[in-house]
Amino acid sequence: MDSHRPALPPAVAEVRLAVRRALAALEPGSTVVVALSGGADSLALAAAVAFEAPKLGLRAASVTVDHALQPGSDAVGDAAAAAARALGLEASVVAAEVTAGGGPEAAARDARYRALAQAARDAGATAVLTAHTLDDQAETVLLGLARGSGAASLQGMAEASDLDGIALLRPLLDVRRATTRAACAAAGLEPWDDPHNTDPRFARVRVRETVLPVLEAEIGPGIAEALARTAAQLREDAEAFDEMIDETIEDIVEHAEAGISVSVAALAANPAALRHRIIRHVVASEFHQSLTRSQTIEVARLVTDWAGQGPIDLPGCSARRIGGRLAFTAR
């Protein structure tokens, strides 16, 4: 060992280790795409992928998505691509059309993921890597808590999920945002600071700039880590519920010409948490709609508190009790 060899900065080592663990599951010869905005998180990720991918026999590229939502966004995209090429990555910039609906943050996110999926397909990639950090996870959990949308939103982001048939990997979910910035500084990389990330019009920015710092100050340090642990535990619970639903649902569901029906007796025999998940699962899989908690509970009353009530209008369908079956029919 060379005693004169400079020590690897801890932040760089931490990011590289996280990336190495994520990439190790991929087949040698595969292509991976880094979603690169030019910010500190994605730039640190790109640098780590550029270092680790060749050692694992992987081809690596970066894709920068230009939403054209800010003046000079094309120059920002070109600068990010140039930084990626300097790291040894193949790099491209793609345009993404942001359509209305769901709020500006959600619309931009949907457009970005569509563009990333298409770019990955064009590159023959098996995986897309995004630079979401532990801080992003904590913000996501808090936003889900504020919406009151149940355990599904409190699970936050998974380390691995599906993006239109392509693996979507988030290797930095255990890494703090301060670490990615330190990694960039140690490597001499100059990140771009997106002005949207400090714009209080966006709920996520208010959580980042105001809510989390107040929680840290009033309750104590470690709030972000605690929220991330909560998300991980809830994902484990959700996976267990999903397995239970898969084992149960084939025996209690019958398809009909205009919809689907579920055995009332079987639903009644299950705990409320599983009963509610089955109801939501049936509506989501058959009618591609999501139920709120209040809608779910109202449907469940057809099972647990039956008093002859009529059909319940739901998104995309209606639910009614017919004898010993709970029937969901397209509207």
Rank of each mutant, 00 (worst) to 15 (best):
P9E: 15
A11K: 03
R16C: 03
R20C: 02
R21F: 00
R21M: 01
A22N: 03
G29L: 04
A40Y: 08
L43H: 07
L43I: 02
A44N: 03
A48C: 09
V49I: 10
V49L: 07
P54V: 06
K55H: 14
K55T: 05
L56W: 06
G57E: 08
L58G: 01
P71W: 15
G72R: 13
V76E: 13
A83S: 12
A84K: 08
S92D: 14
V94P: 05
V98I: 15
V98C: 15
G103K: 13
A108W: 09
R109S: 10
A111L: 06
L116A: 04
A119T: 01
L129P: 05
L129W: 03
T130D: 12
A131L: 10
H132L: 12
T133L: 12
Q137R: 12
A138I: 01
L143G: 05
S153I: 06
Q155I: 00
M157S: 04
E159L: 08
E159M: 10
S161N: 07
D162Q: 11
L163V: 12
L168H: 10
L169E: 03
P171K: 14
T180A: 04
C184Q: 11
G188C: 10
W192F: 14
D194W: 06
D199W: 05
P200E: 07
R201H: 10
V211W: 00
P213F: 02
A226W: 11
A231W: 09
L234F: 13
L234D: 08
D237A: 12
D237N: 13
T248V: 07
D251M: 00
I252C: 11
H255G: 04
A266W: 05
A268C: 07
A268N: 11
A269L: 02
N270L: 14
P271I: 06
I278P: 00
I279T: 08
I279Q: 03
I279Y: 01
R280C: 07
V283N: 00
S290I: 00
Q295N: 05
T296K: 09
I297E: 13
E298T: 09
L302M: 11
T304P: 06
D305C: 07
G308V: 03
Q309I: 05
I312Y: 02
D313R: 11
D313N: 01
G316E: 04
A319V: 04
R320A: 12
G323L: 08
F328W: 08
A330D: 03
R331A: 07
